[in-house]
Design a protein around this nucleic acid. Structure first.
Lengths: 256, 256
DNA sequence: CGAGAAGTTGAAGCGTGTCAAATGCAGTGG
DNA sequence: CCACTGCATTTGACACGCTTCAACTTCTCG
């Protein structure tokens, strides 16, 4: 499935926006990303599995649009969302090494996802070191996010935990250029939030009401409004350092 | 600090043992590892920080002996151990990319740790592809472990969670050649287990008693005995797939 | 042998889970 | 346009797993 150059450019904007938090990409870098992301694009329906635990990994994937998640499931049905994949996120850099998936990936909304072929990685290794570095950065940030989730589940109370998760999603969406000043699109159901926070659906509901009562969030329909991010940050004991938004440290600036 | 060739060889045996779960290293590969790990070795006291949140990462490190952990801390003092570092584990492959540590690393026992200089990575990139691949594998397995911990904290009950953690540590120690048939050295205190599982110290104590009562473990002094691993595995709903022990079918049932 | 750390025990309280039913909301077909 | 349907959200009552607090015991090691 192929998309036109304009759509490809728009679709790739999220990852470019995000990676530029860390490195400055050249016009050639951006063009390569746009070209590659425009080939081999698949569209998925909401609530569809993209990969299942036990599968042989096939390709590296780039989320162009829509939300997805990694999740794990126990035999008795208990399910845990272990991370969210937002537009601009890359998944499965492991493809070329590990033999089988230890978790599943499924869409939340409908989504468009590009497969990145192996050649692409050869190409960036050889001629686009900044993209390569930025991909490394992305995967290290993902590891840091996973550690923070461990902290979140292990130490924070229900409302802290929820506030923390909302902060993280809001900031990550902003990194991808998907949040304006204080609001963003928010397609998660309370069940999704329950599976991500390890709380019951009912308690998620009550926790959200608590946050609403404190005017920390306005969550209605599929939109999240954060009237005062600083207050949500302190309610969630959120420290963004683990996202490594080291803008001023952009070591590797391109010349053009 | 330099150690003699014999001690270096013994010290490096854990990582070789572990990496060979995944790739078969040549004699030259092993020799390079032993030589590098024998230079720049530091010795740490028990309960000492090796790196602190906020520090600039300096070197890639290899645990030669002893146990350590990564942990995060909230301002109010709540502490979460997010992973354990066992002999043969590598930490901070991120060194060359991220600007500051988002977590701390501290020893549990006294430990000897080697700093791996940047040249070493240039050398393996150029001439020792199997080591490089194995290091990749190691870091992907670490990411998988972190996801599994998320699952563990989010979905499992106290006793399942504890059983799962003990399974993981036992299997990982065996991968490093540090467990005989059914027992291993086990230096963690109940406080450590509490910080790793997100439970209170008191409840950890009760949970361990429960496991002992079911003859699932014998934990006394600093030794853990697992009389019947299969039973502990099912008590912890433990599925070892996330450790990716995929070297020609070497699975849990094997005794070596 | 003494002192501090680690482990153990009991009682009481609270945060979160469970169950069950009601309400609201969006999409669909008549 | 309304009635119907199914899913998401909300509410209340109750149960339980885990935490907290505080005291006691047992180990470890100088």
């Amino acid at each position: 499935m192929l998309v036109g150059p304009i759509e490809a450019h728009r679709a790739v904007s999220h990852i470019v926006h995000k990676l530029q938090q860390f490195v400055r990409l050249s016009a050639a870098d951006r063009a390569l990303l746009a070209r590659t992301a425009g080939q081999r694009v698949k569209r998925y329906m909401p609530r569809t599995d993209i990969a299942r635990e036990g599968d042989k990994p096939t390709d590296v994937r780039l989320i162009l649009n829509g939300w997805a998640c990694r999740y794990k499931q126990l035999e008795d049905g208990r399910r845990q969302i272990v991370s969210f994949l937002l537009p601009g996120d890359i998944c499965d850099l492991n493809v070329f090494i590990l033999r089988e998936m230890d978790h599943s990936i499924g869409t939340i909304t409908s989504a468009t996802i590009a497969d990145l072929p192996r050649d692409f990685f050869d190409e960036i290794s050889a001629g686009h070191p900044r993209i390569l570095t930025a991909f490394w950065w992305e995967s290290l940030v993902n590891a840091a996010i996973q550690r923070e989730w461990t902290m979140n589940l292990g130490q924070r109370s229900a409302s802290e935990r929820m506030a923390h998760l909302l902060c993280e999603l809001f900031v990550r969406l902003r990194m991808a250029g998907l949040a304006d000043n204080n609001s963003c699109s928010f397609p998660l159901t309370q069940s999704d939030l329950a599976e991500a926070t390890g709380l019951s659906k009912v308690h998620v509901n009550r926790t959200l009401q608590e946050l609403r009562a404190g005017s920390l969030i306005i969550l209605k329909g599929k939109t999240l409004v954060v009237p005062d991010l600083d207050r949500l940050i302190s309610a969630g004991l959120f420290n963004p350092n683990y996202l490594h938004l080291e803008r001023e440290g952009r070591q590797l600036d391109a010349n053009n």
